[in-house]
Computed example of a mutant assay.
Amino acid sequence: MFDIKSFYEAKSVEDAVAALSADPDSEVISGGTDVLIRVREGKDAGKGLVSIHNIPELKGVEMDADGTIIIKPATSFSHITNHPMIQKHLNMLGLAVDQVGGPQVRNTATIGGNICNGATSADSASTMCALNAVVVLEGPEGVREIPVTEFYTGPGRTVRKQNEVCTAFRIAREDYEGWEGCYIKYGKRKAMEIATLGCAVRVKLSEDKTVIEDVRLAYGVAAPTPVRCYEAEAALRGKMVRDASIYDLFAETALSQVNPRTSWRASREFRLQLIKELARRGLKESILLAGGNIDA
């Protein structure tokens, strides 16, 4: 039995915003795989829930005329992984969210909930940071757009206000076209596991595949929030793909922008080792996916 004060099924985004505004102690629910756990554990017990799960305009993946890919927040992980547009342009994201929980969770859990939950361990979070995704929020004061890299404010906290609804995630064409990358999740077991550390790497190579024109590196569980390592990215721009020193440079520079903690899953020291090792592995795999030849 869940201790829920009330449950309201919103008919539209505007209806959801109005319901949330009418009850300042209420919160949004979609798939419920995070919210209902918090209710059961007593953290959010006694609250009113406003469901956006059955609002049609909050589901699906589409592309704007300018090539921007729009992922709606109530889209389940399974739908994201299997969507042709994701497989063609954002396969890294599809593979990342396919590592969340088990099949039942992935059929129910939504990307909006995974991001808005604010957890640094969310598999979609570091991936969306590496994709330069933009979060679209709608509330009583209108619509606002926030880069996902600026969305998190602390453990389990984001800039989303209580009466705002996430309506979309936008990924611009220049943030996926010509890029390749991978997400590496480390856990104590291979499935049904929360990340001990998550690492997302993306690269954009020169036309002849010999130079790293651009690179992105993002982590989950390497800091209180998902984090981009901008200094590590800057250190590799213009470097030759066959330069064997780029892997250590990438990994060592990343350490200056992370702040992992010790928890029951892993010590700070072990996470620091993972941060270096996954940066190396992720960079190598991304270069190979982009068509680079790393053999000297």
Rank of each mutant, 00 (worst) to 15 (best):
G118H: 01
E57Q: 15
G60H: 12
S124V: 07
I111F: 08
P147G: 02
V165K: 08
L95R: 14
G156Y: 01
S126F: 10
V50D: 04
G118L: 00
E57H: 05
G101L: 10
V136S: 07
Y152A: 02
I115V: 15
S121K: 11
T108P: 05
G60I: 15
L131F: 08
C116I: 13
A109V: 09
D175Y: 09
E141W: 13
T75H: 02
I70P: 09
T120P: 07
S126C: 02
K161L: 06
I69L: 03
Q99D: 10
T75S: 13
C129P: 05
T158Y: 11
E145F: 13
E141R: 15
T81I: 13
I55K: 01
S126A: 03
I69F: 06
G154W: 12
V136E: 07
A74Y: 08
G46Q: 01
I71Y: 11
P73F: 14
E164L: 06
R157Y: 03
S78V: 08
E174G: 11
L49W: 01
D64M: 14
A122V: 10
V97P: 03
C116T: 13
G46T: 01
V105M: 07
V61S: 13
I55F: 06
M92A: 03
I55N: 02
T75N: 00
G48C: 07
T81R: 14
M92Y: 12
Q99R: 15
T158R: 04
I70T: 14
N91K: 14
V61C: 06
P73C: 14
H53V: 12
E164W: 08
Q162R: 09
Q162C: 00
A168H: 00
S51F: 05
E141H: 14
T81F: 15
V61N: 11
V148S: 08
G113R: 03
V100A: 09
A45W: 11
G139E: 11
N132W: 02
K161E: 07
K47W: 07
Q99A: 12
K59T: 06
L95N: 13
T149Q: 11
Q99N: 15
H89R: 00
K88T: 15
G46C: 04
G60N: 10
M63C: 14
T127V: 02
A45V: 08
N54K: 15
N163R: 01
A45F: 05
